[in-house]
Design a protein around this nucleic acid. Structure first.
Lengths: 115, 115
DNA sequence: CTTCGTTATGTTGATTAATGAATAACGGTG
DNA sequence: CACCGTTATTCATTAATCAACATAACGAAG
């Protein structure tokens, strides 16, 4: 009657020094930056305001002692946004994490049979 | 340098028909109701406004076809709040779930060694 | 030294969420 | 049938969040 309507869901993120470091939103932002080379375009594509996108990147860059994205202004193109090697590592780490988490959620949902 | 500052954190909750059914806050509310027999006192103890507490219970009671808490007004005591057997089941289920989730989180945090 | 598109930053307004006050409704008990 | 403390509900105010606009700063290229 009831059981098939219930499911376990959730969210995970990475903390740095007990402050939120990166989660779903910033990961998507990183991926688009990597693809587009522009913070403005990345933000626009995912309908995030440029201001918020910039603040997100700024926080990430300052949270640990390693930069995640390099932002430069000026030049022929107006500026560039480039993901660092550390940023790439974060991407890979988070993807594996998210994948494991989804397995966990479906497993736990299966356990609900007897509720 | 960096790795020991990073940790994986997250939240999980139970959905019913793709709507949020119960999470940390409501679980704590349920526990206090069970202990105190009063919605007002339960809300006060955890510094949740009575209004929000009542809305939470109401949503839960209407989300599935089973009542989680029985609320009655009137009577010598002014009224009572009583958790149902289904509510107890939810409590147990969620605690096991939360316990497994914390194991998952610490496991994943250990994997961060190489970041 | 002008142009260009981006990064960088402040400010204002709008939308939404949460809080708290106030009050009605209730029903055992005496 | 009056009392009591709780549940039930409305309402206005406040708080917090977010979006949008405006504009300065920048630096390579021509």
């Amino acid at each position: 009657m009831c059981k098939e309507n219930f499911s376990i869901v959730g969210r995970i993120w990475i903390n740095c020094n007990d402050d939120s470091f990166i989660g779903n939103g910033k990961i998507e932002l990183l991926e688009r930056i990597k693809q587009l080379g522009s913070l403005r375009k990345a933000a626009a594509e995912m309908k995030m305001s440029y201001r918020q996108a910039w603040i997100n990147i700024d926080k990430m860059n300052k949270a640990s002692n390693k930069q995640v994205v390099i932002l430069k202004r000026g030049g022929r193109e107006g500026g560039i946004a480039q993901i660092t090697e550390f940023g790439e590592k974060i991407l890979i780490t988070y993807k594996n994490l998210q994948s494991d988490f989804e397995v966990f959620l479906t497993e736990q949902t299966k356990k609900l049979n007897d509720i």
